[in-house]
């Protein structure tokens, strides 16, 4: 079982992202790709300062990935001189983001990046299953799960923070169950936003995440 605080969703106009980073850090995050910047502001919003040293894992998914940087690199390698600038190559590697962000989240111990194969779909079910398992095993105190997308004009991210012990204001419990009911939310990129709406607008105590993966047990969210 795990506890969740309020789901977080962020939307930025593309040009606002560096401003949001500066606002969060008090300085720009130099030499960081847009995906890294988006991940950083989401992580900082998801974890209060007193939680940032706790052992933490990050599971993040994205349909776009570092698309603009990849296109730029293809131009550079295929049409340009042949050898790219080192930083341009680094910018297409999402794995780099964890190393660039760890100084601001010292407890970050592990990160896995899942590029998505279909626009409009998500893998929240897989991410939450992994997070639950790791928390049960006692590997981490908390696991951040995220969906990040960078479009030409907008950057958006959705975050769920799972913890083994209740955070300051836990809103939900999450557990695996073999019993499912009709009240479920689909596994979409903005699932945390829908979960938030459900928290605010529904009187029900329980909601399930419906996954097309058809795992044996369902993910059950219970209002605290």
């Amino acid at each position: 079982m795990a506890y969740l605080n309020a789901p977080i969703s962020q939307h930025f106009a593309a040009q606002e992202l560096p401003i949001a980073v500066r606002s969060a850090l008090g300085k720009p995050l130099r030499r960081a790709a847009a995906l890294t910047q988006l991940a950083l502001v989401g992580r900082l919003a998801s974890l209060a300062e007193n939680r940032r040293h706790q052992p933490t894992a990050l599971l993040w998914q994205s349909p776009s990935g570092p698309r603009a940087e990849t296109l730029a690199l293809l131009q550079e390698v295929c049409i340009g001189s042949g050898e790219p600038m080192p930083l341009d190559f680094l910018a297409i590697q999402p794995a780099i983001a964890a190393a660039q962000i760890q100084p601001f989240l010292p407890g970050l111990q592990s990160a896995s990046y899942l590029p998505l194969d279909t626009d409009g779909k998500a893998q929240w079910s897989l991410l939450l299953n992994m997070a639950l398992n790791w928390l049960d095993e006692g590997r981490y105190a908390q696991v951040l799960c995220a969906h990040l997308d960078l479009l030409p004009t907008i950057a958006e991210s959705h975050w769920l923070t799972l913890s083994k012990e209740p955070l300051e204001n836990p809103l939900l419990k999450l557990q695996l169950t073999s019993i499912t009911a009709d009240n479920h939310l689909p596994d979409t990129p903005d699932f945390p936003q829908h979960l938030n709406l459900w928290l605010q607008q529904s009187n029900a105590n329980v909601i399930y995440l419906q996954s097309p993966a058809a795992y044996r047990q369902a993910l059950k969210f219970t209002r605290i």
Binding site: A95, I96, A111, Y113, P115, A213, A214
Partner: peptide, 9 residues
Amino acid sequence: GPCSSFSSA
């Protein structure tokens, strides 16, 4: 069946 991708260098 379900398909997931991982890219952690």
